[in-house]
Design a protein around this nucleic acid. Structure first.
Lengths: 239, 239
DNA sequence: TTTTTAACTTACCCGTGGGTAAGATATCAT
DNA sequence: ATGATATCTTACCCACGGGTAAGTTAAAAA
């Protein structure tokens, strides 16, 4: 029998990609674990950790709440695993940058670019957007460790830049807070379905945070701003 | 009779400043309302909104939970009022800056300085640190309105700067996100009892965010960084 | 003093949501 | 086929915490 809209079924699963992971019972457990993490991360970002119920996660996967406890021992472990995935993404990029050649300033620029990109990925967003105090002291200490490592890396790039004269003299700690803060905040307003492409954001941030807003020298003529279109209105400072 | 430590009693109240507001029954209700708000804001920042119990707030004020409901109809109203106080602080500063003379860049610099200072005050920190989705749709819309106003102001300063050639050509929306993000993030790591003075933070941020990290020109000699002491270690990128 | 009333306390309710006990079912090995 | 096992469901428990009902007390008014 011919279907009127043969693609409908497929689209239905495309819209809920992680439901598929639980279609067969004996499917790879690792895949299911990740499916749980992905949907949980999505919900945590959408509604916050506290307001995300275990039932919400289960519902999205077309399973029941107790099924989740076959893959995670409790809600906090899901949260912790989101942190682990996110920080791993960042660490990975940082190692690449640290191995590169270049001035300190160039490394900071690369840091901002890569870090900004991670801040548009759900797991990355979780790292900076979710509240650490939802974690137990032990888990919180672990996450703090990851974050401190990131911070040390950024500060070392800045210090390199000061030493090689590519960065103006400043307090590396404060510069790191400022730079990282601007990028961290991306996870507060970025919407995957929004009008801004991650690479575009990353590129602009990398430029602005290293070279500042101030005009380098007086411009002669003020010609209009290329063919940039007036873009969709976004809400505000934080959303 | 002489006391061995006559100041002890006084210190006890200094340590818990808001308890005093509820010492007498017929004291000014407005004072008590503010005392509740202050302690609530403090706890919200310390433990998060969701983990702060009405009992926690009451305990700190040496009263019982139902007493709070004489001043606020529910928990959310306390939260909303924190937002109102915080955004009012910011708006106030913004109006002053907008009225000033100067280039766009100078206004952005002033914005960063004043805004950063607000981000070290509890009510100000609440605005950017607490989660809007703890508010009802109606209240959230109100808060969003305040934030959008702040954002519009910042963007207008940036646009002014582009027009008067004090700011390099860029997407004002993106520049606002970057600048505001760096400052907003202060509320995530700033600790009132920490080693950094608000004005110091504000001054450094204002400089870095407008003029960037990049060295303007090659320096001749690299002399050590004045007499700056190695300062107390702070945790990491976000705390 | 006595009355009045706002300010507060004690004792309680109950919806919510994380987590579990025990049983059902699909899939694999034999 | 048949048992064995991981997987998943139905039905439930109960701690927690926001909010309230009803009674108590302190301070101002009369």
């Amino acid at each position: 029998m011919m279907r009127a809209f043969p693609q409908m079924e497929k689209n239905a699963t495309v819209m809920q990609p992680h439901r598929q992971a639980f279609a067969n019972r004996r499917r790879d457990p690792a895949t299911k674990r990740e499916a749980i993490l992905q949907t949980a991360a999505h919900l945590f970002l959408e509604k916050g950790y506290g307001r995300t119920l275990m039932n919400d996660v289960a519902d999205r996967l077309n399973i029941t709440k107790p099924a989740l406890y076959h893959y995670f021992s409790n809600k906090e472990e899901i949260l912790l695993e989101c942190y682990r995935w996110g920080t791993a993404l960042i660490e990975d990029k940082l190692n690449q940058i640290a191995a590169q050649k270049g001035t300190g300033l160039e490394k900071v620029e690369a840091f901002v670019y890569e870090y900004a990109n991670v801040m548009t990925v759900n797991f990355g967003r979780c790292v900076m957007r979710l509240d650490e105090s939802d974690l137990s002291p032990k888990a919180r200490a672990e996450v703090r460790g990851y974050k401190r490592k990131i911070d040390r890396r950024l500060r070392s790039f800045i210090q390199e830049g000061i030493d090689d004269d590519s960065i103006t003299r400043c307090d590396p700690r404060m510069a790191a807070f400022s730079t990282a803060g601007a990028v961290n905040w991306i996870c507060m307003w970025y919407k995957p379905e929004g009008p801004l492409a991650p690479e575009e954001i990353a590129a602009q941030f990398a430029r602005m945070l290293t070279h500042g807003l101030a005009a380098r020298r007086k411009r002669r003529a003020t010609q209009p701003h290329g063919s940039r279109k007036v873009q969709q209105q976004m809400s505000g400072v934080t959303s």
